[in-house]
Design a protein around this nucleic acid. Structure first.
Length: 272
DNA sequence: ACTGGCTCCTGAGGGC
DNA sequence: TGCCCTCAGGAGCCAG
């Protein structure tokens, strides 16, 4: 599932192929994604893509007519640069043919993704307006995380996964960051000590930064593949390792569903 | 303002 | 080998 590092890797991967390039043709094969693909997307034909930015797990292609093409990969989506003549795979829902002779294809088996054309300031759009700070940028600070935790009864894992507080901490990295910070995922956020919050802050950044670095190398050839993950497996300390020995102390890793999400922790390394 | 639960969807994986 | 069942999961939305 594309987490923040993969979305960023995708952004870096497609940008050189699309920035400054004109859209020649748009092909929508399935419209029923999480929200229907924008009806007015055809207006983009003849327009030029200025650049690709990212906010949270949303990709934003800025268009020279002042609009923005918003793409979210959901949990099974991918973008790849292909040859227009390439056979369409099952679940290739949208194709953007470029004047360069390439074609950007949006592929999403579970259709949790989005392809929307936004008019006006994209940051004012409801999907983007109330998002918390980017974890790797200056807006995310220890002080911010302390404020977010203060007075909240919810489990710390649920809180750090809340995009209104901080974006981009997906289910995998939430478990991983809490492991590295030595905090039990179930701990009510308000009960996490100041020093623990400091450790958690550092862990979130470290885990995400390391993963972006990893994604950059392992998904290097994603333009020719379907970009499926699996590359980070060896780096995971707890996620998906129920019953397996902790990489630090050997204790069996625990698993429980918390906030409707699979959650993993080491009962010895992590305390409330 | 919070909090927890439901929902969309398909493929993977386990059990038999 | 094959079928059926369950589960995973981002994130918006809604009800309490």
């Amino acid at each position: 599932m594309p987490e923040l590092p993969e979305v960023e890797t995708t952004r870096r991967g497609i940008e050189p192929h699309v920035a400054g390039v004109k859209i020649k043709e748009l092909i929508v094969r399935r419209r029923d994604l999480r929200q229907p693909v924008s009806r007015d997307i055809m207006k983009l034909v003849g327009c030029c893509i200025l650049g690709v930015s990212r906010r949270s797990k949303y990709l934003l292609l800025s268009i020279d007519d002042g609009s923005t093409l918003l793409i979210h990969l959901g949990m099974s989506g991918s973008l790849r640069v292909s040859d227009p003549a390439e056979e369409w795979k099952k679940h290739d829902h949208v194709g953007i043919t470029l004047a360069s002779g390439k074609q950007l294809r949006f592929h999403d088996p579970r259709r949790f993704g989005l392809v929307l054309r936004l008019k006006g300031d994209p940051m004012e759009h409801p999907l983007l307006k109330n998002l918390g700070p980017e974890p790797l940028e200056r807006g995310f600070t220890v002080g911010h995380l302390e404020t977010v935790c203060a007075g909240r009864a919810s489990a710390i894992k649920v809180v750090i996964m809340d995009a209104k507080q901080v974006v981009g901490v997906g289910n995998i990295y939430a478990s991983e960051a809490l492991f590295h910070a030595g905090i039990l995922p179930q701990t009510p956020a308000a009960q996490v000590s100041k020093s623990q919050v400091g450790k958690l802050f550092a862990s979130i950044r470290k885990v995400l930064a390391a993963s972006i670095k990893e994604g950059g190398t392992t998904l290097r050839d994603f333009l020719n593949s379907d970009g499926q993950p699996g590359y980070f497996k060896q780096r995971l300390f707890v996620y998906g390792r129920k019953g397996e020995p902790c990489r630090k102390c050997g204790t069996s890793i625990c698993h429980e569903v918390l906030g409707q999400r699979a959650t993993y922790w080491c009962p010895k390394c992590q305390k409330s």
